[in-house]
Amino acid sequence: MKKLPSICPACQSPLNIKRLSCQKCSTEIEGLFELPALAKLSVEDQEFVVQFVRCSGSLKEMARLQKLSYPTVRNQLDNVIEQIKIPENQQ
């Protein structure tokens, strides 16, 4: 399955979901649905969040696995937090 894009490749604006379909019964729902906050992140940031959860939220463990320094991993987390905060503030 293709990866879900969150940014319009033409104008770089955030994308919304217009149509959902059930693969089993082919039911289709049409409307305008907003992407969840985590789905709006870049693929790299989403992978970071998944790894963060896998490590039970331990930045030290993430730093050890990625062989990066603790502040580098913490800065990545801060960047993700900042991106999640922006849409929240816009609402």
Binding site: K67, L68, S69, Y70, P71, T72
Partner: peptide, 10 residues
Amino acid sequence: PFQFIAGGNA
């Protein structure tokens, strides 16, 4: 190098 080493080790 601080991407890879910081804290007590550095």
